[in-house]
């Protein structure tokens, strides 16, 4: 449910436009689920709070007393745009958070990159070094006297 709501808000922020695919036509739910699993709590909190603000703010942005998911398509698009430039700083900040995540998913997607003429990204390995013992080698480094600046 949460993933679906998030995906919906992100798609409203980065929808398809002309030839450029948007998050409405790309399946980013697996990446989103991974993000939800792995994100630092403070980051996730910011994202969920901002999603809530997106859903609840149409009255402030387009004057419609409805949650965003009940807005007609065209009005929803106006709402997304108006949130980004709203005169209330916190509304803009909420949108910035949504845009940061939406942009990360959109800008990394191979379909978007190919349409824009940019090289595709390799996968993120997510790996790191485990324990490792370095064999003792003879001292080849400069001796103390040499390291004086």
């Amino acid at each position: 449910m949460l993933t679906r709501t998030l995906a919906w808000v992100l798609a409203a922020t980065f929808p398809s436009s002309g030839d450029l695919p948007g998050l409405d036509s790309l399946d980013v739910r697996p990446s989103l689920r991974q993000l939800q699993r792995e994100a630092a709590p403070v980051f996730a909190l910011g994202l969920y709070g901002s999603t809530g603000a997106f859903l609840l703010c149409p009255l402030l942005t387009v004057g419609w007393p409805l949650p965003a998911f009940l807005l007609p398509r065209r009005v929803l698009d106006r709402h997304a745009h108006a949130m980004a430039g709203h005169r209330f700083y916190l509304v803009r900040q909420a949108m910035l958070m949504i845009k940061t995540v939406g942009a990360a998913l959109w800008g990394a997607h191979p379909a978007v990159r190919s349409q824009l003429g940019l090289a595709a990204y390799e996968p993120d390995p997510g790996t790191f070094r485990g324990d490792h013992v370095v064999p003792q080698t003879p001292r080849s480094a400069p001796q103390p006297a040499e390291i004086q600046p």
Partner: peptide, 25 residues
């Protein structure tokens, strides 16, 4: 700045935002 960060800082939202990134090159 990587495309993702440019997209995050480009003003606007919705279709206008996506369209504004079409000229990234």
């Amino acid at each position: 700045l990587p495309l993702e960060l440019v997209a995050g800082r480009t003003s606007g939202g919705g279709k206008q935002l996506t369209a504004r990134l079409g000229d990234i090159r």
